[in-house]
């Protein structure tokens, strides 16, 4: 008799868990599909209302508010950028540039000058869709 009660209680607890597991699975599927996994960075991209979505190119430059520059996740100085671009430039002529919205034009220009000197034809300046983040 006692065994029967224990079995019934165990079944009840399992039955109660099933809706919770369903919800957790739904949440999991939602985050897996709707979210994008990205390395976190401190850059506050400028806001824009543009519709065109962009993706990172093979050469991805990040210019932070403190004027630090990163190329494909590696910190680099503007002087070394010149040499670093030589490796890529033969095969890739599009550069994606993520500059913090507070960066001044004079600092952005230091990077763009190197890009221009290296003959890069197209630059994609990244922004964040307005109304987000």
């Amino acid at each position: 008799m006692n065994d029967l009660i224990t079995l019934k209680q165990s079944r009840n607890s399992v039955d109660n868990m099933i809706p919770m597991i369903n919800i957790v699975f739904l949440l999991l599927v939602f985050f897996m599909i709707a979210g994008q996994i990205r390395a976190s960075n401190d850059i506050q991209l400028p806001k824009a209302n543009l519709e065109s979505p962009v993706v990172e190119k093979k050469i991805n430059l990040q210019l932070h508010d403190d004027k630090s520059l990163f190329m494909n996740g590696q910190r680099i100085s503007v002087i070394n950028l010149r040499q670093a671009l030589d490796i890529f430039i033969a095969e890739e002529i599009i550069v994606s540039l993520q500059a913090d919205r507070r960066v001044k034009a004079v600092d952005l220009d230091r990077v763009l000058t190197v890009i221009r000197d290296k003959g890069v034809i197209k630059v994609t300046l990244f922004a964040e869709k307005s109304g987000q983040g």
Binding site: L45, E128, K129
Partner: peptide
Amino acid sequence: SSSFNHWTGIDF
């Protein structure tokens, strides 16, 4: 780890 911000950009 998910981010819901969508990037846009200006090609020039």
